[in-house]
């Protein structure tokens, strides 16, 4: 999926997948921070968005 979205020109940072168990609170927090950091790096998204006036 990631490779496919990349093929369509979507930045891979925007699509991330991780397995987190219900008891892994710290891991969840770490991964969320990581995802947000990565997305901030690539900046605002213009792709695959519906344009609304």
């Amino acid at each position: 999926m990631k490779s496919f979205l990349q093929y369509l020109g979507i930045e891979p940072e925007r699509y991330q997948l991780a397995w987190i168990s219900g008891s892994e609170g710290q891991k969840f927090a770490d991964i969320m921070t990581h995802v947000v950091d990565e997305i901030k790096k690539v900046g605002p998204n213009r792709k695959l968005r519906e344009e609304h006036e």
Binding site: Q6, Y7, L8, G9, I10
Partner: peptide, 15 residues
């Protein structure tokens, strides 16, 4: 050929 294009070029092509 598509894979050798840049991400933006690919997106614009498909859209």
């Amino acid at each position: 050929k598509i894979e050798s294009m840049s991400a933006d070029e690919r997106y614009d092509f498909f859209i």
